[in-house]
């Protein structure tokens, strides 16, 4: 080259952030991960979306062609409608209970002093890291016909109840699995809260309850909303809990997809349900993102 532009020369590393260098460095750095995600996230999702429009021949098990019948089945077939409705009902109930338990619990935790606070935070959050199969199994024993819950019911004179394989059991176990996801965001927004603000409200003569409702609650609302959406999203796609505690008849969306794929072998139908589940999840998350990022970030800085 006959001329050298001074600005084209690479700047020294450790310069202004983010660096405006020749863009080969970031591509080189993120390339391997980008390849993996292109191959194992984008491609399979695209293939699955295609598959959901394929026809399925029950006799031969072959797929091909183009059809909308799987999507139509979801909105017209009573079987699928009931399953989507049940999934929605169970998830909404689990979310509501998580709010009712998780929000006060996060508040109580935030008012504790160390070391108790750290210990109990660990107790509440650590089950998150234990395999969900183990937790579902624990509930099946607790609620089983010979389990301690029924034992207590008999001792109280209420008598043995059939607890397993009911919607109630699925909801209870989902709450157990999802509660940390509610406590975490609420706890985070409580951490950001200046305790002096609540004290200020009290100093103006507000009662404790008024202070909580008028001052604390509005500030942790984004955390509650965020937790609710995560809990709802994860509950709606939960597999192990309904699979192990719902039994043969109490199907949810995830267990139906599993059946379609591995028992009925109707992959296109399963793919259609999966695509709907994914779309619903993305819509919820993006709506939430819009709402929280736009509204609350502005108001609460």
């Amino acid at each position: 080259m006959s001329t050298t532009l001074p600005d084209a020369a690479p700047a020294s590393p450790g310069g202004e952030t983010p660096e405006r260098r020749f863009p080969s460095a970031p591509l080189f750095l993120s390339g391997p991960a980008a390849l993996l995600f292109a191959a194992l996230v984008l491609t399979p999702l695209f293939l699955t979306a295609l598959l959901s429009f394929n026809q399925f021949d029950y006799a031969t098990g072959r797929t091909g062609g183009f059809t909308l019948e799987h999507y139509l089945a979801v909105v017209t077939d009573e079987y699928y409608l009931e399953i989507f409705l049940r999934t929605f009902r169970i998830s909404a109930l689990a979310t509501a209970i998580c709010v009712v338990i998780g929000v006060p619990e996060a508040y109580i935790l935030s008012r504790m002093s160390n070391p108790w606070r750290s210990i109990f935070l660990l107790v509440i959050l650590a089950p998150l890291l234990v395999s969900v199969v183990v937790r579902a199994f624990g509930w099946s024993m607790l609620l089983g016909p010979e389990g301690p819950v029924n034992g207590a019911l008999i001792a109280l004179g209420i008598g043995r109840m059939k607890l397993l394989y009911s919607e109630g059991t699925v909801v209870v176990a989902l709450v157990h699995v999802m509660l940390p996801f509610m406590v975490i965001p609420v706890w985070t927004s409580l951490q950001k809260l200046d305790p002096a603000v609540e004290q200020a409200a009290l100093s103006f003569g507000a009662s404790r309850a008024t202070a909580i409702v008028r001052v604390v609650a509005p500030q942790i609302l984004p955390g509650i909303l965020s937790g609710s959406l995560i809990v709802f999203g994860l509950s709606a796609s939960a597999f192990a809990i309904p699979g192990l505690l719902g039994g043969r008849r109490l199907k949810m969306v995830a267990t139906v997809v599993y059946d379609q794929y591995l028992s009925d072998l109707n992959w296109p139908m399963g793919a259609a349900v999966a695509v709907i589940l994914l779309a619903a999840n993305l819509i919820i998350m993006l709506t939430y993102h819009r709402m929280v990022e736009g509204h609350y970030r502005r108001r609460l800085g």
């Binding site: 996230v41 999702l45 597999f239 997809v257 992959w267 994914l278």
Partner: peptide, 14 residues
């Protein structure tokens, strides 16, 4: 934010 179930069926297809 992609349900693992969806990732599972997508990987299976791939």
């Amino acid at each position: 934010i992609i349900p693992h179930l969806v990732l599972g069926v997508a990987m299976l297809r791939l």
